[in-house]
Design a protein around this nucleic acid. Structure first.
Lengths: 246, 246
DNA sequence: CCGCAAACGCGAGCACCGCTCTTGCTTTAG
DNA sequence: CTAAAGCAAGAGCGGTGCTCGCGTTTGCGG
């Protein structure tokens, strides 16, 4: 076909990239709500109507930025994982959590774009799903390594939740215990609860030493999902009465 | 002073209430981003410029709605607590969590307004703080009751987080152990991570049986913060199941 | 009782927004 | 070489938040 056939096609790619770049710049500065097609066009020295040759609507532009943001977050998670090579699963889990948090603090508007309030009439197209899975795949990898290495304590699950957990595991990570997968999903959400609260100001005047606070709570989440320290047996989770089974 | 001094003052109160009512209606229908001063004025049969006699800007109107939403959430939490009188602390904790979730699912746009992405240039005025504390006070009350009753297991905390926890406890609930207060803050954020993910579509095609999923995870959060089942102790009742399936 | 300042409602208008349509021009393909 | 397709530009539509000047209403103090 005509991938890089003519100069026309290349120009289209370049202009598309320039639009996205400028849009991302404005997104980082002012947030998604303030992102204006007209302002992007103005900055690029072209008529606003010309933008519609490249993106059918403002929402389509936002979708492109959403995918890029997911990828950026995924890269940050992978980088944090690689930087923590050689340490135990719990430490690596915590390191990746901190990497995700650092990315969110450094890209607050991108974070808000993908994990904040959805745009009113907007429903994310299926295109965003693979990009979104990239970050969670890092956590799955850590759990997988832990299972092969120091072991993985299966979280307790009530029987009525078992079928749901089995279904989730089949869809997400068939080689992990269903209890772990179901708990991972919840943990994933809880992690973004912590990050979102910090980012959106809910911790203002409440939590001061947020680095220490987050590191500890992220480690707790790792324990919740089943990670154990390699040197010792299953670490008792605080306040869990399940340990007194006799 | 001049509370109900003249008919003028009463009219002002009534018009202000009518504006808020119509604004809340539009908020519930379309979301905060679509809330339009002109549309509110149109629906009320008055010129858009007249609204500025009552609310200096759109953000001020939103602030009023934010406070109302916090109060509404607080009421829902209190109602859930009162409806679960007489059960153990863990069940009551879970019931309040479910009440908060039900409120969020029933008022998605109000939820997004107070716990979603903040409005771009917007910073919540201090006026919203007391209203925001109303819901969390319900959880503090449960912990307080548990401390006087069946007991409260102190979550483990690393020593470097201890001073921060002590500071938090002094500000929030001086009669509770610092470890519990610090963990409660994190738990609070994690709870809204779970709710937000469900509400904003992050659980689509991932979690199906969301009622069961949430109930279990909410109970886990209760254990994390230190709640224990009242049957536990010297009473010879081994292996009593935690969840009541009836 | 009356005058006057404050509060009020209104309409026009400003600057901006997303988006559409028409009009030419240029590159590409047959 | 010609016709088709892609592209940029401008005008325009309906919408937004917000400001300003106008005439009117209201209620308090002298």
């Amino acid at each position: 076909m005509s991938s890089t056939h003519g100069a026309r096609a290349r120009a289209r790619i370049e202009v598309t990239a320039a639009i996205k770049e400028e849009a991302r710049r404005q997104l980082a500065e002012e947030g998604a709500a303030k992102l204006s097609l007209r302002a992007v066009a103005r900055e690029l020295g072209m008529a606003s109507s010309a933008l519609y040759r490249y993106f059918p609507s403002r929402d389509d532009l936002l979708t492109a930025l959403i995918i890029d943001s997911y990828e950026s977050l995924g890269e940050a998670a992978e980088a944090a994982r690689d930087a923590a090579a050689g340490v135990g699963p719990v430490q690596r889990w915590t390191a990746v959590c901190e990497g995700v948090r650092a990315w969110a603090l450094g890209h607050p508007h991108e974070y808000a774009l993908i994990y904040g309030t959805p745009v009113p009439g907007y429903t994310a197209p299926a295109t965003t799903v693979p990009a979104a899975e990239r970050a969670v795949a890092v956590f799955i990898g850590i759990l997988r390594d832990a299972q092969r290495g120091p072991g993985l304590a299966e979280p307790t699950l009530p029987p009525e939740l078992k079928p749901e957990a089995v279904r989730m595991a089949a869809d997400i990570a068939p080689d992990l215990p269903p209890e772990v997968v179901a708990t991972l999903v919840a943990t994933w959400a809880q992690l973004f609860g912590l990050i979102g609260f910090e980012l959106f100001g809910q911790f203002n005047r409440v939590v001061e030493d947020r680095d220490t606070f987050f590191r500890h709570m992220a480690g707790q989440l790792g324990h919740t999902v089943g990670l154990v320290h390699p040197q010792q047996g299953p670490a008792p989770r605080p306040g869990t009465p399940a340990a007194r089974t006799s």
